[in-house]
């Protein structure tokens, strides 16, 4: 398992490929991957940049605990979570969440569970930098 908060731009497919080298591909024939990138259009405005803040220590702890909970609920063997903080530009990756299992249902369901926990409980906050000024995003919509 690897959980990391990144302050620099990352290429999620490259990160996935690198991490995959240490995952036993024979024992983990199913892999579910979610990649979230920065949106340029939000609430009718063009977003020029995103600023992402987190609570160092607690963010990692919430993510670790959510993986433990996912391991309790599903037969999953490995998890990779990478999440950006700092200044992010349109189309750059914000989050990579990958889950490995023997059967597809476990990794697909655990992946969805983990992204929902990440969005509803992990202490991250987004501020949008618009042409017109700045605004904090006030809440995440569950399941969207």
């Amino acid at each position: 398992m690897k959980i990391e908060i990144l302050t620099e731009t990352f290429e999620p497919l490259m990160a996935l490929q690198n991490y995959q080298q240490q995952v036993n591909q024979v024992a983990n024939s199913a892999n579910s991957v979610f990649i979230g990138r920065m949106r340029e259009q939000h609430m009718g405005n063009t977003v020029e940049q995103l600023y992402l803040e987190h609570y160092p220590g607690m963010t990692e702890r919430v993510l670790r605990e959510s993986v433990v909970e996912a391991q309790r609920r599903w037969q999953i063997n490995d998890v990779l979570i990478l999440h950006r903080v700092g200044q992010i530009n349109p189309a750059e990756a914000i989050v990579l969440l990958a889950v490995w299992s023997v059967h597809r249902a476990d990794s697909i369901q655990a992946n969805e569970f983990l992204i929902e926990i990440l969005k509803s409980r992990a202490p991250f906050w987004k501020k949008e930098i618009l042409k017109e000024g700045e605004r904090w995003i006030e809440s995440n919509t569950p399941g969207r």
């Binding site: 607690m58 914000i94 990440l118 991250f124 906050w125 995440n140």
Partner: peptide
């Protein structure tokens, strides 16, 4: 760790207040 407003805190502990989270 998340707590409710009536949680009792002692010396040496770390308390954090923050708005709803918006990561991912």
């Amino acid at each position: 760790e998340y707590v409710k407003a009536d949680f009792v805190v002692k010396g040496g502990e770390e308390v954090a207040f923050f708005p709803p989270v918006t990561g991912g």
